[in-house]
Design a binder for these strands. Structure first.
Lengths: 192, 192, 192, 192
DNA sequence: AATGAATGAGGTTTCATTCAT
DNA sequence: CATGAATGAAACCTCATTCAT
């Protein structure tokens, strides 16, 4: 079930949690606040989620679906591999910039004790599309000889880091800088 | 005051907190457990730290000093720029691998609401040495034309990501892989 | 909102606090004991009061309402000024004797750092009725020329002191002694 | 042993406690703060006092001695009974005004659970001189027929109340008002 | 005598969760 | 389904007191 089919209230709870965790961290986000922001009673949350842990675990799935959905929109088939890579790198970076709550939630989540409890599928779900793309690059002899999963992790890390830098406000990245960064990453993965 | 001069008990508290946060996160690390692991009474912690927040903020400083100290040891002057970069990249990666508590604490810290409360000096402290090194590369026309701070953040992100991948146990990186990764990052920052 | 409309549990908490503070002082009245005596869980207190301080501040308001309500009952219009004064003096004194918790709480409260935090209205609320009465006495040329607020404070002090003496058990004041004391105060405020 | 013979440090501790209790109440006056203000180590307090309770009990004795000493200075024998009363009433009121710490400490103390633990002598000590004076007034047929202890308590209460009003800043009492108030109390105790 | 780091019981408060309505 | 008052375990923190120096 994708986000489109999620009950109105359940979605409100997820979105509220997302925002609150970005602002206050796991630590500073009590269920009572989630309820308030979502406009539901505290008890209502427990109709949709067994516990706070469950809510957070499902929120991770929810963000992974969001990302995947957003990425599928931006794909186009009528370009060469390099152009495709640039499009993907920049699209994903812009997705995080437009959804900073998602970015900061994921960063907190993957570094928390929650993450190891995810199933393998869960935690690779939103990466699969990148991995497939890398495999294609390998088959065509374009990319360096490095495990696709590892390559995907390194790429993804560069995307999130760039988005965080931009959101921090320290370096406001314009199109030029995005291209520069994508170029850097491209040069790091392609065969020279 | 560097870590070397920190009172025995204060250090025990810092180290215990570091380990517990790695294992259980901020959330799952009550002061009572810190006290227990450090072998002191709960109240003693408050002799050294005003509050849990203060403890965590100081722990970040403490890790930055550790990193800086470790890095200074590994520096050598008798090599060219490229070799120097490889040495630095791999040394720092190995430091994190040998100190996973530090790595996971920092990852949690920089993505939490604590981080924005650090002074500018604090949060750039352990990066200064990399930034200086990048400036040198710019002066010698070796590196791409990109803001040194931004470049340093991207490099550091690659280091932490590699270390995390190794520690996750998914990909056990041997010397060959470290060199491969360092080569990738090198190709992303140097002028081609 | 007067005490009559206060939720059952809120009232139980206020009354329990009142009794415990009389017996053990602010200091010796932990929230856990309040909860126990009120028959609620510790956390429930925080449903009704933000903090212990808030509870104590509201308890003061609560006592002021109690006093005002009790005093309004005892007023009669069919008597001359002097008789009216006696009735009021003795009624209030008897109120404190019948409600020693209120008396001792107020004495502790007004001499504590809490009192200066009351609004002007709060801390004069239960005195207003006396002040009005004194103004009437001034208009009719019966009372000495002294600021009504000051006079009211002096009168109220005499009432509380008399009640405390009686409750101490050192001097059990019977009707005769109450009249004697009221007479003394009367002679101190009237024009001779 | 009067205050004159108290060891320097012991006195510093008593005086510091007095000031802190006035400002923050019993509740808000930890031993650590007392130590700091007195310029001694926390442990040192326990050389002079068995416990915090003991410190507070002794502080009450200390204030009683202070009052008695101050009152003895102000007495003069060359005046009639009424003048003598005025002098005493006003002197004591002014003592409290000049020593607000003493006033507020005593008010808090006598309404706290500490007070009932005082010996009879302790808690009547500073009143004895007033009581003797009242007895003299009875023998000479000047005063109303009321138990001297009760009369003394009522008088003392009027003094403290007047001093508190003045210190509150609500009514700044000048000589005229002090005389007016003393006159009121005089009219309440003398035979009319 | 004096120190102050250390203690740990116990204080206030929070918050995930339940359940009667 | 939804509510939100109520719960109580457990969190953070305080502070009277001790004791090695």
């Amino acid at each position: 079930m994708g986000p489109a089919m999620i009950a109105e209230k359940k979605k409100a709870i997820l979105e509220s949690t997302l925002k609150l965790i970005k602002e206050n961290g796991f630590h500073g986000t009590p269920m009572s606040q989630v309820a308030k922001k979502a406009g539901v009673a505290a008890g209502t949350i427990y109709h949709y989620f067994d516990s706070k842990d469950t809510l957070i675990m499902e929120l991770f799935s929810y963000t992974q679906y969001m990302i995947q959905a957003a990425m599928q929109e931006s794909l186009r088939e009528d370009m060469d591999f390099r152009e495709n890579f640039f499009l993907r790198w920049i699209s994903r970076c812009q997705f995080y910039i437009q959804n900073p709550d998602v970015l900061f939630f994921i960063e907190q989540f993957v570094n928390s004790p929650y993450f190891p409890r995810c199933s393998k599928e869960q935690n690779e779900f939103s990466q699969n599309e990148i991995i497939q793309f890398i495999r294609l690059g390998h088959q065509n002899g374009i990319l360096r000889d490095l495990d696709p999963k590892l390559m995907s992790i390194m790429i993804h890390s560069s995307i999130m880091t760039a988005a965080k830098v931009h959101l921090d406000g320290k370096f406001s990245l314009a199109e030029k800088e995005f291209k520069q960064l994508a170029q850097m990453i491209w040069d790091s993965i392609r065969k020279l």
